[in-house]
Design a protein around this nucleic acid. Structure first.
Length: 348
DNA sequence: AAGCCGGGGAT
DNA sequence: ATCCCAGGCTT
C-alpha cells in the first residue's frame, strides 16, 4: 500500500474541516483552543474560543485579568479547573518566560493544565516539533486499525499507544499529521456508527477485517455516580438585592457563585424547613442536574434572611440583582435564574 | 491506579 | 439510558 502517512495526509487534504485555530501558528491561540477543546466537542467550544480571543487577544491581557472575569467567560462550559489553570499558566508565561510562549515540549508540559496531549498539540501545531498527539480520536483510530484491545485508560495502554503513534508520526510534517489523525477519528472512525465505507484504510484495518469495530477501543474503568441533595435559598430582604455565596471547597464548581446553599444527605421538605427555621419557606422549583460522577438533586426555595441564620448559613454576600451578570454561576443556577427571568441577569 | 472534575450531543 | 467528547489533576 501507499505509505500510511502519505495516504493519511492525502485524505486530510481533501476532507478537513476549516477551523479558526487551524488558520494560525500563534502558540497562544492554539493553546487557548486546546484547553477549551479538552473533553469538549468542537461545536460546543467554538463560541468560547472566539470569546476568549476577543477578550484576551494575547497572553498579557489574560494574565492581567481577574480570575472571576476568566471564570465568567468560561461559564457554562464545564470543567472549570481548566479556566483557573489557564489563568494561572498565563501568569507563569508572563512572569517566568517574559511573555514569550515556551517553545519546547518539556517547557510547554510544565504549564498548569497542560498534559501530554496538549503539550504535543502545541509543540507540533505551533513549533513543528515531532510529538504525536494521543486524544480520544487517536486512541480509537489506532485501536481499531491495529486491533489492539489493551485498555486505553490503563498505564500499559497509554504507553503502547503513545509508542505506536510516535512510530507512525510523519516527522516531516507533524502538524498536519496530528491534525489528520484526530480528524480521522472525528469524521470517519467515530465512536458510534463509524463511516468504514469512506475510510481510506478499510483494507488495512484489523478491526474491520475481524468484525471488532464495535468492541474497540477497550476501556477498563467504570464511572460511579454519587447522589447529592442541594437546597438553595432565594432571599430578597430588600427589592433589587439578592444574596449569593462563593463556592470555595475542593469540590465541583470551585470559585463559582451560587444561591445560599444547604446540602443534606436527603431531600428536605418545605415542612421540615419551616419547622427548623420557624419561618416562611416556599418551594419554587426542583431540578435534577446530571454530571459525570454525580447527580445533583436541587430544590430552590424562597425564604427570609432569618431562616438562613437558623440553618447555619452565614457565608453569603449581598449584591445588586442587576450585577448578577458580573459573577460566574454554575449552570444549575444559571438555568434557575433564566427560567425565573431574574431581572438584570442574562446568560451571556 | 483510581477518583474527581461538567455540560451537551448522538444514538 | 448510555457513551463520548482535541484530558488533566489529585490522592
Amino acid at each position: 500500500m501507499t505509505d500510511f502517512g502519505t495516504r493519511l495526509l492525502e485524505w486530510y487534504h481533501n476532507n478537513y474541516r476549516s477551523l479558526p485555530w487551524r488558520q494560525t501558528t500563534d502558540p497562544y491561540k492554539i493553546w487557548i483552543s486546546e484547553i477549551i477543546l479538552q473533553q469538549t466537542r468542537v461545536a460546543q467550544g467554538m463560541d468560547y474560543y472566539h470569546r476568549f480571543i476577543d477578550n484576551f487577544p494575547n497572553v498579557q491581557s489574560l494574565a492581567a485579568a481577574k480570575e472571576d472575569q476568566v471564570l465568567r467567560l468560561w461559564q457554562g462550559l464545564g470543567y472549570y479547573s481548566r479556566a483557573r489553570n489557564l489563568h494561572y499558566a498565563a501568569k507563569t508565561i508572563v512572569e517566568k518566560h517574559n511573555a514569550k510562549f515556551p517553545n519546547t515540549y518539556k517547557e510547554i508540559l510544565q504549564l498548569k493544565g497542560v498534559g501530554p496531549y496538549t503539550a504535543a498539540a502545541i509543540a507540533s501545531f505551533a513549533f513543528k516539533l515531532p510529538y504525536a498527539v494521543l486524544d480520544g480520536n487517536v486512541y480509537r483510530f489506532l485501536a481499531r486499525l491495529k486491533g489492539i484491545d489493551t485498555p486505553i485508560d490503563s498505564n500499559e495502554g497509554k504507553k503502547r499507544f503513545t509508542e505506536l503513534a510516535n512510530v507512525l508520526l510523519n516527522k516531516k510534517d507533524p502538524a498536519h499529521h496530528n491534525q489528520a489523525m484526530m480528524e480521522m477519528g472525528a469524521i470517519i472512525c467515530k465512536a458510534q456508527s463509524p463511516e468504514c465505507d469512506q475510510c481510506p484504510f478499510q483494507s488495512n484495518c484489523a478491526a474491520f477485517q475481524t468484525g471488532q469495530i464495535n468492541f474497540l477501543p477497550v476501556k477498563s474503568k467504570k464511572i460511579l455516580q454519587r447522589h447529592r441533595y442541594f437546597h438553595y435559598f432565594l432571599v430578597h430582604p430588600e427589592k433589587d438585592n439578592v444574596l449569593i455565596q462563593q463556592r470555595n471547597a475542593k469540590d465541583i464548581w470551585q470559585n463559582l457563585y451560587q444561591l445560599p446553599l444547604l446540602e443534606a444527605d436527603k431531600k428536605l421538605s418545605v415542612n421540615h424547613l419551616k419547622k427548623t427555621t420557624n419561618a416562611e419557606v416556599k418551594l419554587l422549583k426542583e431540578t435534577k442536574h446530571i454530571l459525570s460522577h454525580q447527580v445533583i438533586h436541587s430544590r430552590f426555595f424562597s425564604t427570609s434572611v432569618q431562616a438562613l441564620t437558623k440553618l447555619g448559613i452565614d457565608n453569603y454576600q449581598k449584591i445588586k440583582t442587576q450585577n448578577c451578570i458580573e459573577y460566574a454561576f454554575p449552570q444549575l443556577v444559571v438555568n434557575f435564574f433564566n427560567e425565573q427571568q431574574m431581572p438584570g441577569y442574562k446568560n451571556e
